[in-house]
Design a protein around this nucleic acid. Structure first.
Length: 196
DNA sequence: TGCCTGATGTTCT
DNA sequence: GAACATCAGGCAC
């Protein structure tokens, strides 16, 4: 993996697939984040898929200024602001114009970096990154990162080979009102950083 | 351990 | 004006 070294992603062609497949593919993949001068790797352990056919998705009612990035090419970051105080981030997937993205709900830090704890108000352990807004706060992701190309610093994505099926748990999504029964949440089995 | 609520601003009806 | 892809702290059990 890109530990301390160079990230070697050519393209995100592997993400030009349906949202469920992409959400599974992103589990176990690695984020490489530059936080206060440190290069830090995190393993994605929980994802949720959203696409235009889906009443819970921001893209459901078509392209707006807010959702424009969702309709762009795969491999870009879609960041939205919610509940008046939190940011959440998604990886755009599928073909351009499709309006599909995968919410990153939790990740497991592979490096111990104090900067993460500082950004999270002195918290530690699973509390650093076990939720979508916590993850954004820990990594310093805000609206200025909306539309960021994930091939480039300060936040890069390395898509790794898909995990074996027996390590993946599939459930309904969390914290939504519409389309509650759509089972497009995925997480790594028994990983402590998974929310709930 | 689990429910309830306040914080706080953008988007949509 | 209401809803919202959330979180943290408080209180009851």
């Amino acid at each position: 993996v890109a530990h301390q070294g160079r990230v070697t992603n050519g393209t995100f062609d592997v993400l030009k697939t349906d949202v469920v497949d992409a959400a599974r593919r992103l589990l176990g993949s690695v984020l490489v984040a530059d936080v206060d001068g440190n290069r830090l790797c995190l393993r994605i352990v929980e994802t949720e898929g959203y696409d235009q056919s889906d009443a819970a998705s921001h893209s459901y009612r078509g392209k707006t200024p807010r959702t424009e990035v969702m309709f762009g090419p795969a491999g870009y970051l879609y960041v939205y602001f919610t509940y008046g105080m939190h940011y959440c981030c998604n990886v755009v997937v599928g073909e351009e114009g499709q309006g599909a993205a995968v919410l990153l709900r939790a990740a497991e830090p592979l490096d111990v970096i104090d900067a993460l704890s500082v950004r999270r108000g002195g918290r530690s352990g699973i509390e650093l990154t076990n939720g979508p807004a916590k993850l954004c706060q820990a990594l310093g992701i805000t609206k200025v990162m909306n539309g960021h190309n994930l091939l480039e610093p300060p936040l890069q994505l390395q898509v790794l080979p898909q995990l074996p099926q027996e390590q993946i748990v599939q459930t309904t999504r969390i914290g939504i009102r519409e389309a509650k029964d759509v089972p497009w949440r995925f997480h790594i089995k028994d990983n402590p950083y998974v929310s709930r």
